[in-house]
Structures are given as C-alpha cells and as structure tokens.
Design a protein around this nucleic acid. Sequence first.
DNA 1: AGGCAATTTGGATTGTGTCTCAACTAGCCT
DNA 2: AGGCTAGTTGAGACACAATCCAAATTGCCT
Lengths: 149, 149
Amino acid sequence: MRDPVELFREHLRSKNMRCTQERDEIVRALSKTKKHFRIEDLVTDLKAKGSAASRATVYRTIPLLIESRMIRVAESNPGEESAYEYIYGRGHHDHLYCTRCNAHIEFEERGIELLQMDVARHYGYKLVGHRLELYVVCPQCRETGAREI
Amino acid sequence: MRDPVELFREHLRSKNMRCTQERDEIVRALSKTKKHFRIEDLVTDLKAKGSAASRATVYRTIPLLIESRMIRVAESNPGEESAYEYIYGRGHHDHLYCTRCNAHIEFEERGIELLQMDVARHYGYKLVGHRLELYVVCPQCRETGAREI
DNA sequence: AGGCAATTTGGATTGTGTCTCAACTAGCCT
DNA sequence: AGGCTAGTTGAGACACAATCCAAATTGCCT
C-alpha cells in the first residue's frame, strides 16, 4: 500500500495545489486512526501534537481528502457535528448503528451493493457512491423504549 | 387516511402534551407539501402565512413530528442545513441524488429492504430504521467531471 | 537566491440551532 | 363559566460549527 502522505501529495499536484507541511500533518494524523473522528477533535489533536495546522486549514483540507477518497463521511445527522472515517486501504463497508448507545459496527453485504447498481441502472444513471446506515437496538439497550429513527 | 392534524394531536395526547394552535398550523402547512423542506424555510413560510408559530416553536416541533413518524430526515450532509420530508400516508421510499445538480428521485427496492433485515438479524439486532442514499450523475450532468461522494 | 502567487493564519463574522424566562394558554376541575 | 396549574410560547441572548477576510507566510519556479 502506498504511503498516504505521498498519495495525497499526488492528488494535490494533480490539481495544481501546493504540498504543504500542514496538509502532510493532517494526513499523517488521520492515517493512524481507525475510529470515526470529528473535525473539532482533529483540530484539538493536531494542536496537542504541536502541528501548525489551524482550524481553518483543517476545515479546508477535509473536502480535499474526501475528493481524493482517503476519507468519507461516516455519520451526519441534523444538529450534530458530522463524523468522518479514514478509508484508504480499507475494504468497503457500511455501518450498523445502535440508536440508543451509538455503538456502531461495520458490515459488508455484496447483495445490497448489486441491487443498488440495478436501481441506478434502471433509471439510466451512473452510480458513483452511496450511503447506507442501518439503525438497530442492540441487545443491551433492548429493554427501555428505544428512540427510533 | 386520517387527518394529519388530528393524528398529531393524538400523538401529543399520548405523551400528555398540549394540542396548541401553533402545532396544528405547523402540521397543516407540512401536510400540503411533497417537497423536501428545510426548517428555516418552513419558519419563513409560516410567518408569511400569518401563523403565530415562531422559530423556537418550529424547532421544538420537528422532533415531535419525527417521533410520530409524520416526517423524517431526507438530507443531512456536513455543513449544510438538513432537509426533511413529510411521509405520513406515503409509501416507504429511498432517494437517488444527482451529486451535481442535487435533483433527487424516489425509488423503492424491496430486495434491498429484505437484505437489510438479514444483515441486522445476522448480528442479532432488531432493525428499527435505515437510511439509504444512492449518489449518481444524471445524464444532463454527465459531461463535466463530476464531484463524487 | 529572488520574486510571484497561492496558501495559511487568526480574528471576525455568519448562520443554525438551543436556551432562558416572563407571559400566555390549554386542559381540567368545580 | 371561572379559575387554577402546568405546559407552551416568543423574543432575544447565547453557543457553536463553519466560513470569510486581510495580512503574513510559504512553496515553487527560474
């Protein structure tokens, strides 16, 4: 697998954008985590690590990272800060969330993916992405009346 | 089909909450639209119609409407205001969005729904909801290099 | 090394969404 | 119908994410 920092640099060059220390640091920090992360937390982490990257820079870099397919949106709900996940080099997967404790697990279901392509094709479109989230109540939370989505 | 206003009133009563003119007006306004709507627009519309419902009240009513299953989140992406849709009395459907022009169409694919239940069951969970969004490039937008999600 | 142009920075700003609290009102009881 | 009580409302203050701006810095090319 390619070095994430170098890969991102290539993406930047292909857009005639500069390879800067701050952008490198952001990629380096992200490539080490498997967990979903929120931008504000990332800003704090970077600051703690002594990185020069500021809030504004982090916010500006996120769209570039999405564009380069190194990260993607993992959680996005009204009124709460979105969470992202680093996906470069990892197999594709979707998520299953417990609506009560917010725990999540990853799953892959090839059958669903194939049907999605069928749907897009049926309408004459080219499928370029999807978001699938399953909301469940996990056994531990089963008892109380769950807030359902 | 039941009168939406009356249905929502029942939901309120079941929670020992008051049936107010403002809440009625909000439901009445929503039940007339098929389009996805944003809260700030709804506030503006209500104001224009001479409704007494204020911003705070609208924001407070949205969670109640979701709870009663009369509306649901239709679009939620980082950095943009979420859109909702009125779903009472309408068949279940998911959405297909063009990533360039933001046009969307509704679809239903029973096969996907069934597989979703399989996935949840496989992990021993009870499925209480899901969100499925397919991102496509529509023929009109096909030409230019699409921003993919 | 020099110079240009793009990028970064930090503070100010915007806009969404929440909270506060006094005033109001729905629902109930008699 | 009148009045009590608790839930609800509205206006504005507030909190926060996210963006914008001018000024300073940096990477990059020659």
